[in-house]
Design a protein around this nucleic acid. Structure first.
Ligand SMILES: [Zn+2]
Length: 256
DNA sequence: ATTTTCAAT
Protein backbone atom coordinates (compact mmCIF):
# COMPACT_ATOMS: atom_id res chain seq x y z
CA UNK A 1 0.00 0.00 0.00
CA UNK A 2 1.36 3.44 -0.93
CA UNK A 3 0.75 4.74 2.56
CA UNK A 4 3.41 6.60 4.51
CA UNK A 5 2.86 7.41 8.16
CA UNK A 6 4.71 10.12 10.04
CA UNK A 7 6.95 10.76 7.09
CA UNK A 8 7.51 13.87 5.02
CA UNK A 9 6.68 14.25 1.36
CA UNK A 10 9.66 14.81 -0.93
CA UNK A 11 10.04 18.08 -2.81
CA UNK A 12 9.77 16.20 -6.04
CA UNK A 13 6.49 14.55 -5.15
CA UNK A 14 5.00 17.72 -3.76
CA UNK A 15 5.89 19.59 -6.90
CA UNK A 16 4.76 16.76 -9.14
CA UNK A 17 1.36 16.43 -7.50
CA UNK A 18 0.43 19.72 -5.88
CA UNK A 19 2.67 22.45 -7.15
CA UNK A 20 1.96 22.22 -10.86
CA UNK A 21 -0.76 22.99 -13.34
CA UNK A 22 -0.30 20.03 -15.65
CA UNK A 23 -2.36 16.91 -16.11
CA UNK A 24 -1.17 14.44 -13.53
CA UNK A 25 -2.21 10.81 -13.60
CA UNK A 26 -1.80 10.11 -9.94
CA UNK A 27 -3.00 11.54 -6.70
CA UNK A 28 -1.30 12.49 -3.48
CA UNK A 29 -3.26 13.05 -0.28
CA UNK A 30 -1.79 14.28 3.00
CA UNK A 31 -3.63 14.14 6.29
CA UNK A 32 -3.25 15.11 9.88
CA UNK A 33 -5.51 14.31 12.76
CA UNK A 34 -5.40 16.51 15.82
CA UNK A 35 -7.28 17.54 18.89
CA UNK A 36 -6.81 20.13 21.61
CA UNK A 37 -3.17 19.28 22.12
CA UNK A 38 -0.61 20.91 19.85
CA UNK A 39 0.83 17.66 18.59
CA UNK A 40 -0.89 15.71 15.85
CA UNK A 41 -2.29 12.40 16.95
CA UNK A 42 -1.76 10.88 13.57
CA UNK A 43 -0.50 12.02 10.22
CA UNK A 44 0.90 10.84 6.94
CA UNK A 45 0.22 10.72 3.25
CA UNK A 46 -0.86 8.29 0.57
CA UNK A 47 -0.77 7.90 -3.17
CA UNK A 48 -3.40 6.10 -5.11
CA UNK A 49 -2.74 2.44 -5.73
CA UNK A 50 -2.64 2.36 -9.54
CA UNK A 51 -5.75 0.77 -11.00
CA UNK A 52 -6.89 -0.22 -7.56
CA UNK A 53 -7.39 2.13 -4.65
CA UNK A 54 -7.82 5.85 -4.59
CA UNK A 55 -5.66 7.80 -2.18
CA UNK A 56 -8.64 8.75 -0.04
CA UNK A 57 -9.64 5.12 0.41
CA UNK A 58 -6.19 4.27 1.67
CA UNK A 59 -6.18 7.11 4.16
CA UNK A 60 -9.70 6.35 5.34
CA UNK A 61 -8.76 2.75 5.95
CA UNK A 62 -5.85 3.91 8.05
CA UNK A 63 -8.07 6.31 9.98
CA UNK A 64 -10.65 3.63 10.70
CA UNK A 65 -7.88 1.47 12.07
CA UNK A 66 -6.47 4.28 14.14
CA UNK A 67 -9.73 5.69 15.47
CA UNK A 68 -11.29 2.33 16.06
CA UNK A 69 -9.07 1.96 19.08
CA UNK A 70 -10.24 5.29 20.40
CA UNK A 71 -13.91 4.48 20.17
CA UNK A 72 -14.35 4.44 23.95
CA UNK A 73 -13.13 7.99 24.37
CA UNK A 74 -16.34 9.71 23.41
CA UNK A 75 -15.37 13.13 24.70
CA UNK A 76 -12.47 13.42 22.32
CA UNK A 77 -12.93 15.81 19.44
CA UNK A 78 -10.71 15.29 16.46
CA UNK A 79 -10.04 17.60 13.59
CA UNK A 80 -9.05 15.95 10.36
CA UNK A 81 -7.20 18.02 7.81
CA UNK A 82 -6.97 16.43 4.42
CA UNK A 83 -5.00 17.91 1.54
CA UNK A 84 -5.63 16.23 -1.79
CA UNK A 85 -4.07 16.95 -5.14
CA UNK A 86 -7.38 15.99 -6.79
CA UNK A 87 -10.87 16.35 -5.47
CA UNK A 88 -12.45 13.07 -4.37
CA UNK A 89 -14.46 11.18 -6.99
CA UNK A 90 -18.09 10.30 -6.38
CA UNK A 91 -17.21 6.97 -4.82
CA UNK A 92 -14.65 8.48 -2.47
CA UNK A 93 -17.11 11.20 -1.51
CA UNK A 94 -19.51 8.50 -0.43
CA UNK A 95 -16.75 6.84 1.57
CA UNK A 96 -15.86 10.14 3.20
CA UNK A 97 -19.53 10.67 4.07
CA UNK A 98 -19.61 7.25 5.69
CA UNK A 99 -16.55 8.13 7.69
CA UNK A 100 -18.16 11.34 8.92
CA UNK A 101 -21.28 9.41 9.79
CA UNK A 102 -19.29 6.80 11.70
CA UNK A 103 -17.57 9.39 13.85
CA UNK A 104 -20.43 11.82 14.10
CA UNK A 105 -19.66 14.61 16.54
CA UNK A 106 -16.19 13.19 17.06
CA UNK A 107 -14.33 14.15 13.93
CA UNK A 108 -14.62 17.29 11.85
CA UNK A 109 -13.31 17.11 8.30
CA UNK A 110 -11.48 19.89 6.54
CA UNK A 111 -10.72 19.06 2.95
CA UNK A 112 -8.35 21.20 0.94
CA UNK A 113 -8.25 20.45 -2.74
CA UNK A 114 -5.63 21.44 -5.29
CA UNK A 115 -7.46 20.57 -8.52
CA UNK A 116 -10.93 19.41 -9.37
CA UNK A 117 -10.99 15.83 -10.58
CA UNK A 118 -13.11 15.20 -13.68
CA UNK A 119 -15.32 18.06 -12.80
CA UNK A 120 -17.27 17.69 -16.00
CA UNK A 121 -18.72 14.49 -14.55
CA UNK A 122 -21.94 15.41 -12.80
CA UNK A 123 -21.52 12.49 -10.41
CA UNK A 124 -18.32 13.98 -9.09
CA UNK A 125 -20.05 17.30 -8.67
CA UNK A 126 -22.90 15.71 -6.76
CA UNK A 127 -20.42 13.81 -4.63
CA UNK A 128 -18.78 17.01 -3.50
CA UNK A 129 -22.16 18.57 -2.82
CA UNK A 130 -23.18 15.57 -0.72
CA UNK A 131 -19.95 15.60 1.21
CA UNK A 132 -20.40 19.25 1.97
CA UNK A 133 -24.01 18.69 3.03
CA UNK A 134 -22.72 16.01 5.38
CA UNK A 135 -20.66 18.57 7.21
CA UNK A 136 -17.28 18.52 5.53
CA UNK A 137 -15.53 21.83 5.12
CA UNK A 138 -14.32 21.80 1.52
CA UNK A 139 -12.17 24.44 -0.10
CA UNK A 140 -9.85 24.88 -3.04
CA UNK A 141 -6.29 25.44 -1.90
CA UNK A 142 -5.14 29.01 -2.25
CA UNK A 143 -1.51 30.08 -2.13
CA UNK A 144 -1.57 30.19 1.66
CA UNK A 145 -2.89 26.63 1.77
CA UNK A 146 -0.13 25.48 -0.57
CA UNK A 147 2.37 27.21 1.64
CA UNK A 148 0.90 25.60 4.71
CA UNK A 149 0.82 22.16 3.13
CA UNK A 150 4.43 22.56 2.08
CA UNK A 151 5.40 23.72 5.54
CA UNK A 152 3.60 20.89 7.28
CA UNK A 153 4.33 17.98 4.99
CA UNK A 154 7.47 18.85 3.03
CA UNK A 155 9.75 21.22 4.88
CA UNK A 156 9.25 23.72 7.70
CA UNK A 157 12.52 25.45 6.90
CA UNK A 158 12.49 25.84 3.13
CA UNK A 159 10.48 28.44 1.28
CA UNK A 160 7.61 27.37 -0.87
CA UNK A 161 7.98 28.50 -4.46
CA UNK A 162 4.71 28.32 -6.35
CA UNK A 163 4.99 27.29 -9.97
CA UNK A 164 4.02 29.87 -12.58
CA UNK A 165 0.27 30.44 -12.80
CA UNK A 166 -0.50 28.31 -9.77
CA UNK A 167 -2.43 31.12 -8.16
CA UNK A 168 -4.32 31.77 -11.32
CA UNK A 169 -5.38 28.14 -11.62
CA UNK A 170 -6.27 28.00 -7.97
CA UNK A 171 -8.50 30.99 -8.40
CA UNK A 172 -10.25 29.41 -11.36
CA UNK A 173 -10.87 26.19 -9.48
CA UNK A 174 -12.20 28.10 -6.52
CA UNK A 175 -14.57 29.85 -8.82
CA UNK A 176 -15.83 26.55 -10.24
CA UNK A 177 -16.36 25.29 -6.72
CA UNK A 178 -18.26 28.41 -5.74
CA UNK A 179 -20.56 27.89 -8.68
CA UNK A 180 -21.15 24.34 -7.52
CA UNK A 181 -22.01 25.48 -4.02
CA UNK A 182 -24.36 28.14 -5.33
CA UNK A 183 -26.06 25.58 -7.50
CA UNK A 184 -26.34 23.30 -4.50
CA UNK A 185 -27.98 25.92 -2.36
CA UNK A 186 -30.49 27.02 -4.91
CA UNK A 187 -31.53 23.44 -5.59
CA UNK A 188 -31.72 22.32 -2.00
CA UNK A 189 -34.90 24.29 -1.60
CA UNK A 190 -36.43 22.35 -4.44
CA UNK A 191 -35.36 19.09 -2.85
CA UNK A 192 -37.03 19.91 0.41
CA UNK A 193 -40.12 21.19 -1.27
CA UNK A 194 -40.60 18.11 -3.39
CA UNK A 195 -39.37 15.54 -0.94
CA UNK A 196 -42.81 14.02 -0.39
CA UNK A 197 -43.65 13.35 -3.97
CA UNK A 198 -40.32 12.03 -5.16
CA UNK A 199 -40.78 8.46 -4.00
CA UNK A 200 -42.44 7.53 -7.23
CA UNK A 201 -39.57 6.53 -9.43
CA UNK A 202 -39.85 5.48 -13.01
CA UNK A 203 -41.88 8.44 -14.02
CA UNK A 204 -39.51 9.62 -16.66
CA UNK A 205 -39.09 13.11 -17.85
CA UNK A 206 -35.88 13.28 -15.94
CA UNK A 207 -36.78 16.49 -14.29
CA UNK A 208 -34.30 18.11 -12.02
CA UNK A 209 -36.05 17.57 -8.72
CA UNK A 210 -36.06 13.81 -8.97
CA UNK A 211 -32.41 13.68 -9.92
CA UNK A 212 -31.58 15.88 -6.97
CA UNK A 213 -33.56 13.66 -4.70
CA UNK A 214 -31.79 10.60 -6.04
CA UNK A 215 -28.50 12.23 -5.23
CA UNK A 216 -29.61 12.97 -1.72
CA UNK A 217 -30.59 9.37 -1.30
CA UNK A 218 -27.22 8.07 -2.46
CA UNK A 219 -29.17 5.91 -4.82
CA UNK A 220 -27.38 6.72 -8.01
CA UNK A 221 -23.91 5.23 -8.04
CA UNK A 222 -21.70 5.18 -11.08
CA UNK A 223 -24.38 4.82 -13.66
CA UNK A 224 -22.52 4.55 -16.89
CA UNK A 225 -25.08 6.56 -18.75
CA UNK A 226 -23.65 9.89 -17.92
CA UNK A 227 -25.49 11.77 -20.59
CA UNK A 228 -27.21 13.84 -18.01
CA UNK A 229 -28.30 16.96 -19.76
CA UNK A 230 -29.16 18.56 -16.46
CA UNK A 231 -25.47 18.93 -15.81
CA UNK A 232 -24.78 22.50 -14.99
CA UNK A 233 -21.05 22.83 -15.12
CA UNK A 234 -19.50 21.76 -18.33
CA UNK A 235 -16.13 22.60 -19.81
CA UNK A 236 -16.36 24.92 -22.70
CA UNK A 237 -14.61 22.34 -24.79
CA UNK A 238 -17.62 20.10 -24.56
CA UNK A 239 -19.81 22.78 -26.02
CA UNK A 240 -17.37 23.28 -28.83
CA UNK A 241 -17.32 19.56 -29.48
CA UNK A 242 -21.08 19.64 -29.76
CA UNK A 243 -20.92 22.46 -32.21
CA UNK A 244 -22.03 25.05 -29.74
CA UNK A 245 -20.17 28.28 -29.84
CA UNK A 246 -21.18 29.47 -26.41
CA UNK A 247 -18.29 31.25 -24.80
CA UNK A 248 -19.78 31.76 -21.40
CA UNK A 249 -19.96 28.05 -20.63
CA UNK A 250 -20.19 27.58 -16.93
CA UNK A 251 -21.18 31.05 -16.04
CA UNK A 252 -24.08 31.24 -18.38
CA UNK A 253 -25.44 27.83 -17.51
CA UNK A 254 -25.37 28.52 -13.82
CA UNK A 255 -27.16 31.82 -13.86
CA UNK A 256 -30.29 30.98 -11.98
C1' DA B 1 -11.10 30.94 -17.26
C1' DT B 2 -7.44 25.58 -17.84
C1' DT B 3 -9.82 21.51 -18.17
C1' DT B 4 -10.68 15.07 -19.86
C1' DT B 5 -7.71 14.24 -14.76
C1' DC B 6 -6.50 8.28 -8.90
C1' DA B 7 -4.27 6.13 -17.36
C1' DA B 8 -3.42 3.84 -21.11
C1' DT B 9 -0.22 3.21 -24.45
ZN1 LIG C 1 -11.93 8.32 -5.60
Amino acid sequence: MPLFLKKLVSFEDFNGNFNNIGQVHKTLACFNLGNETPLWKHWGFAYNNPNSDHAEQIILQELYTFLGLDQSNISLKYKLNLYTSYSPCFSCCKDLCSFLDTYKNQVSMHLKIAKLYKFYDSNNQRGLQMLRENGADITIMDLEDYKECFYLFVSPTDTFQPCPDLNHYSYGNARDMDLLWNEDESRSKITIHKSEICHCKGSSGGNESSSVFAATEFSTPESKKDNNEARKITPEKLHIAHGCKGHKGVKRKLSF
